[in-house]
Design a protein around this nucleic acid. Sequence first.
DNA 1: TTGACAAATAGCATATTTGCGATACAACTA
DNA 2: TAGTTGTATCGCAAATATGCTATTTGTCAA
Lengths: 108, 108
Amino acid sequence: MFMTNREDQIKALASELRMEILRVLDDPGEHFSHQVSADPVELGVCVHLLASKFGVSQPTMSRHLELLKRAGFLVAKRQQKWTYCSRDESALAEYSEWLRGSLNIRAV
Amino acid sequence: MFMTNREDQIKALASELRMEILRVLDDPGEHFSHQVSADPVELGVCVHLLASKFGVSQPTMSRHLELLKRAGFLVAKRQQKWTYCSRDESALAEYSEWLRGSLNIRAV
DNA sequence: TTGACAAATAGCATATTTGCGATACAACTA
DNA sequence: TAGTTGTATCGCAAATATGCTATTTGTCAA
């Protein structure tokens, strides 16, 4: 059964880098068309391409992705040597709605 | 001129306590009807009532409120000895919309 | 089996966050 | 003026977060 951990989700977004990761993964075709091992739109983006994209080491990127996975915002598919990451749109949408409702935020 | 600092806003919400503060301030009449110096709904809630509500020290509460103020989510009105805090609904709504748009989150 | 490449994990150093008590400041009261 | 109450700030200690290098693990190809 799926367990949503709000604490993990809140913390996951409390980082400019992780926000940027989610942004580039919103349009993988735009930012990772040079990925040759698999279609970035279909499968997702592998870890070391994300690391080089943001100029951080592979272990550092690996940990940020782990936090986003724990929050449920990312899904990772292991395929051969690579781990392909893509957004979980429904989790992001659900969180956004939860935040609004949780704080009882009215429409603008 | 009003300057929105997204970093401050993101960080401000990355704390369960600060989330709770915003929640109780959504309905001050419910949680702070015992405030005698001023109407909690009209003016807001003073710092030491918030501190005792959550069982933290006054300086600790003061700092959390400062972070929420810097984020723009709280307004504080100094009146006599007291500092009355209340939510800035428009700032919360604006942030919520920005988050959604910034990550390009689709509707549920 | 060896070597390569991709990713995960361990271990460590630094930075930031968070809590508190002590204290300063501000507004009132006797 | 002296004392009280409410708030802000300072200084410190503990907990978390974040980055790196080194190492381990997994997968594949010679």
